[in-house]
Design a protein around this nucleic acid. Structure first.
Length: 110
DNA sequence: GTAATGACCTTGG
DNA sequence: ACCAAGGCCATTA
């Protein structure tokens, strides 16, 4: 129900290039509501139950912290996946987050 | 049906 | 500069 917002989020997350990460606020802002960042996080929470599993490991908070790593099947899954993407993780934080940060509003720009 | 929470971010004092 | 509160959508109790 009302998965419009969720669907958009999943679409954007699935569009995230390999080796890149995005933030909840960026997606929310891209959708039009910067304040709806919480909804993006909630969408990710349901990302494991939806049909097409989205790369939620590529989505982190604004500081690049793996906030939802505990919500994964295994906390190491997120780090492992990110590591496979050639992304360096340190203390549950993404190194060079600014460099690998993928902003839909900026990259896609509609 | 109402109330509270959640993988957050922005703005105000 | 730091601390506090609000706002958004959906789900669960």
């Amino acid at each position: 129900m009302e998965k419009d917002f969720f669907k958009m989020v999943y679409e954007v997350v699935k569009l995230v290039p390999k080796g890149r990460v995005t933030s909840y606020g960026a997606i929310a802002n891209y959708l039009g509501s910067k304040s709806s960042s919480r909804v993006v996080g909630y969408a990710m929470n349901a990302s494991h139950k939806i049909k097409p599993k989205v790369p939620a490991h590529r989505v982190v908070n604004r500081i690049g912290l793996l906030s939802g790593k505990k919500h994964f099947e295994t906390p190491f899954q997120m780090e492992e996946l990110l590591m496979k993407e050639k992304i360096v993780i340190k203390n549950d934080k993404v190194i060079d987050f600014k460099k690998i940060f993928w902003d839909p509003q900026k990259e896609l720009k509609f």
